[in-house]
Write a protein that binds this DNA or RNA. Structure first.
Lengths: 254, 254
DNA sequence: AAGCGGGTTACGATAGGCGTAACTTGAAAT
DNA sequence: ATTTCAAGTTACGCCTATCGTAACCCGCTT
């Protein structure tokens, strides 16, 4: 029937679906054909063809029990990507430096599709530490990742804040008005500290990475267990992160 | 016209081309539309549609000057892959261990499409070291990667050896007969040492990773500058690599 | 031995995707 | 300034690559 959707003009549907398939396999290791088809609401033959195509190219691998995982070509893509995405390439050594000094886990997060997305990380060598994972998503409205929201145009900001705010812990802010007020405070002070908003017992500190025009392109973050984190540590983290943030900005060309 | 090619049954062509596009961008950062189209022998509109689709999903990113690079989704894919591909996941800490002990660069290589392909590596922290790169390909017929050939069925082996052997340095073996004899020797001794066959001034030692049935699934490798590598070092590397190889085999379930 | 569900194959219909050709833009050449 | 050229993009009608249906083939359970 109709064909011109609002904004989906000029994309190749089969490729689009195939990306869905690929990401589905990435998210669910050892997934089966039928499962993928169900997840995506597509027919089995279609998905089978896609998986076969991906398999030929080494992007996925079919085990002898018929389950699918990512393949070696995906690894190659990923390593190539991490040298090509400026932000990641530049941030990585800086994240490591901060992580070493703070002796806690650091992350680089961007806004992606209405959530915060971890695209680089460093974890220190110690038994107990915050676990970070590239690709993991978190709400923008909870924890110190709020800094990503704080610098948006008020209008866009409101669009990004859902009607009901997901409650992750008892400290999560769930009132829109309060959240907006908090964002205002963050913008004025230039950082955000969250105590147990995302996970109990965790302290998280974030500082925005700003472009020359004042727009946010990412956030750098330190996450630490609350029991070993004093006020003075938090202050140290903030200083470290601010340095890191300006270094990244600078190296990106500003 | 005709449609049934020899073995290309049942794959989705547009997806296949799109993978070509993606890999092309991976290999050539900051490539332009026209270049991709030329490389692949496709029309510009087709490639444009593909790139747009990939861009929407964050697999590639278009710079404001119109060049394309891999995007953040590729990073996510890659990190997911390295936890899903058993061989890589298992080999990584072992490569690191060997690399630390040898204080030289280590690699894990597999046969892919008639070449050897680096799918994992470790580089020690020292100023002068062999540079390894995930995704880099080398001929199977030169250097210590020959171990990958040595254990194949003689028939398959011969198929894999091209008519004329690429000469990389003056020490590269270029006679098929000599190569086959060398492979025989490698199989008997269980490792391969190459002096300057791939690059002058480099020593490379490889040991095969064998499956329960004696088939080769990968090779572990130490690469080092010749000037600081004595015979005794080579012997040490061989021992380290053999240990590593059996550890990997064991952890894979044999 | 019938039933079930995952995986696979066959095939004809169709709309998704293709290339041609035309247009835009911006930069280089004259 | 004016022309030329090439890269990038859009439009559009044709056609074939791709789709879903339906049927089939396991192996496993009941």
């Amino acid at each position: 029937m109709d064909k011109r959707q609002s904004s989906k003009s000029d994309i190749v549907q089969s490729v689009d679906v195939c990306i869905d398939v690929l990401l589905n396999v990435a998210k669910n290791p050892d997934i089966r054909l039928t499962e993928v088809a169900q997840n995506l609401g597509e027919t089995k033959p279609r998905i089978l063809r896609m998986l076969r195509t991906l398999e030929r190219r080494g992007l996925v691998r079919k085990s002898d029990t018929g389950t699918y995982r990512l393949g070696t070509t995906a690894i190659i893509l990923g390593t190539a990507a991490s040298t090509q995405v400026d932000l990641v390439r530049i941030a990585n050594p800086i994240l490591e430096e901060v992580g070493q000094k703070a002796n806690e886990t650091t992350q680089l997060r961007i806004i992606d599709n209405g959530e915060s997305l971890c695209i680089a990380k460093f974890e220190p060598m110690r038994d107990l530490r915050v676990q970070a994972m590239i690709g993991r998503r978190r709400p923008l409205t909870a924890g110190s990742y709020k800094v990503l929201l704080a610098y948006l145009h008020p209008q866009v900001q409101l669009q990004m804040i859902p009607e009901t705010l997901p409650r992750l812990t008892k400290r999560t802010i769930t009132d829109r008005g309060k959240l907006v007020a908090e964002l205002d405070k963050i913008r004025r002070q230039g950082f955000c500290v969250s105590y147990g908003e995302v996970s109990d017992q965790l302290v998280s500190v974030s500082v925005p990475v700003l472009a020359f025009d004042g727009s946010v392109i990412a956030a750098v973050n330190v996450g630490a267990p609350a029991f070993r984190t004093q006020k003075s540590d938090v202050d140290r983290f903030i200083v470290l992160l601010k340095e890191a943030s300006s270094k990244i900005s600078a190296r990106l060309g500003w």
